[in-house]
Structure formats: C-alpha cells, structure tokens
Design a binder for these strands. Structure first.
Lengths: 158, 158
DNA sequence: GTCATTTACGTGCATACGCACTTTATAGCA
DNA sequence: TGCTATAAAGTGCGTATGCACGTAAATGAC
C-alpha cells in the first residue's frame, strides 16, 4: 500500500478500523493543491486567494457571509484579504450597518478573476487527463457524498 | 449541488471541465481534520503533530527522511518539531554524520503516541459510522487510486 | 430611552506551510 | 591534501489556519 498506514491494531472488539481516511485526504489535498497552484503561480495567486476571488464579485458582501460560503474561519479570511486589498484586487467598505465590512472586487480584481478562471480550466482539464475523466467524475461524486454526510462544524449552531 | 462550483463556462472546444475537484478535496479535508481533531484535542495534539508522532519511534531518524515519509516540507517539519521537542515528546541528536539531525520519541512521546492512537481509533470508527463503513472503504480506495496517479512533486528529482 | 445581549469584526498567539537564501558538513576528485 | 560540489539543515518572509479574547455597533427587553 502506497500511503503510510496510521492504524496500529490495538486489541478491541468488533471490526478493525479502516486505514486512516484523514491521512489520505490530507495527502491528496496537498498534492492537488500543488497541482492547481502550478497553473495559478504565473498570476501570483495562491489557491486560497483564488477561491476567495471566485466567491467575490462586484456586489458588496459581508465578511462573515463570504467566510461561510468559503467555509473558512472568519479570522482567517480577515487576514487572507489583507494582501488582496493591498494589491488592489479587493475593496472593503461600510454600509448602513456599520458593523459589517462589505467586500467586493475592484476592476483589477475582476480582470484577474477572469484570467485565473482560464488557468483553473487548464488545471482542471489537466487533472482530468491525469486521473482519467471518468475516475475524476466518480471521485467528485464520492467527495460530494462525503461532504453531504460530514456537515461543517458550525459554531453558530452550538 | 451542495458545494459551491468554481467553474464558469468559458467558451472553449471539447468537453466542459468537471466541477472543481480541488475545492471538494480542500473542503472535505477541512471537515475531516476538524472531525479527527475533536478526538485529539483532549491530548493537546493537532492532527499534524499526531501524524508526526505516528511516523516517529525510538529509533533515531533523520529529519529529511521523516519529512519525506510524511510528505511534508523539510522546513515545515523543522518548525513543527520545535513545540514537540519543548514539550519533551521528541529528542533531536547528532550522529556520526554531523549534518543529520536525528529524531526519536522520548518515553513520554511513546506514551503519548499510544494514547493518541487510541483516540485515532475512536475517531476513525466514528467517521466510519457517519459515512458508512462500505462507503468509507470505497472512498479510501478512490483516494488511494488518485494518490497513485498524482505523484508528489519531488524537488530532489528535478 | 436605557442597558444587557447579541452580532460582526479585529488582534494576539501558536501552529502550519513552502519558497529563497544561507550555513555547515561530508564526499569526491585533482 | 586541498578545493569544489553536494547534501542536510536552519532562517527570513509571506501566507494560511483557528482559538481565545476584546471592541464597537445594533438589537431587544423593559
């Protein structure tokens, strides 16, 4: 087996646990991140930044709303936005509710997003070429299914 | 579809790219990491630290060798080890080749590793309960297969 | 209208990640 | 033996992550 197995027996009743799903996910996630970032690097974008870009638009959007859609920690997003604001891709403003920090893309940000989308298409096609299109489709479905069963931990619902 | 889709059409020849596999992987990885860490938190362990623990033993092992096995950046491992050394779980020493930093678990580290393994078993069983054992097994196989096809980017081979 | 609660957000701290560059030590060759 | 190439590791920097705590604004009970 190619991936290191994290499971040591431990005498206990019932079925043995399967090899560590989390380790495989982490490892595959790392490799695919590198894979996609090869295509985004020419644009000076990290994968996280790209994912923020594609979830932003011209319409102002509150930070928490964006964080929820990205399923990213609010405070992580705050800090991830800083370099994007400095580079003029994103603007932050305040509306009638002065608590909300409203975020939107600048024209530069919109243009970058389009270029980045083009690169993403190349990356995804390339990934499908490596994995096989049918396999990629199946994998997507399994990931989808797993996501449906493992709900995000929502601090707001506890 | 539950996961946000990162793909916008873009007119181009051939098949449309599938929805973003990387986004699904990242999202599922985040959720499962939270899932496993619920079980490791009582031991004061992050998932990364746990994965380092289970790849260490009493026998001294060079940093780069460990990093390769963990498929983790060498410099990341250097810094990840620091708190584990400070807490007395890991010791670093030099052998005949003074370049190599040899790492091994202390008795405390070994004891912690065993307790952590117990927690991992609980986490993995719990994950299998949520996803279904058969589905987890299938998912593991797909991840395995994808890992076999997407090789790690090895700086040493370039 | 006042004040406690809630909501949205920021910051401090620690871990995690990886690239570029530097340092130190070994290996290999003249 | 000495000098260069290579190997292993450390450090600076920037990004990424999330928890605990703090702050300001809005909400709601009275």
């Amino acid at each position: 087996m190619h991936v290191n197995d994290i499971d040591a027996g431990l005498g206990h009743p019932g079925l043995e646990p399967l090899p560590c799903t989390g380790a495989r996910l982490r490892r595959l996630n790392r490799r695919t991140t590198v894979f996609y970032e090869q295509y985004l690097r020419p644009l000076g974008l990290r994968l996280t930044q790209y994912s923020v870009l594609v979830h932003l638009g011209s319409a102002p959007q509150a930070l928490l709303e964006l964080a929820d859609r990205l399923e990213m920690d609010r405070t992580t997003l705050t800090r991830s936005l800083r370099p994007m604001i400095e580079r003029g891709w994103v603007v932050a403003s305040r509306g009638s509710d002065a608590r909300l920090r409203l975020l939107s893309l600048t024209p530069d940000g919109l243009a970058l997003r389009e270029r980045a989308r083009g690169q993403w298409v190349r990356a995804q096609r390339s990934l499908e070429a490596v994995l096989g299109r049918a396999f990629t489709c199946e994998l997507n479905q399994r990931l989808e299914e797993a996501l449906a069963r493992i709900k995000p931990s929502l601090p707001e619902e506890n």
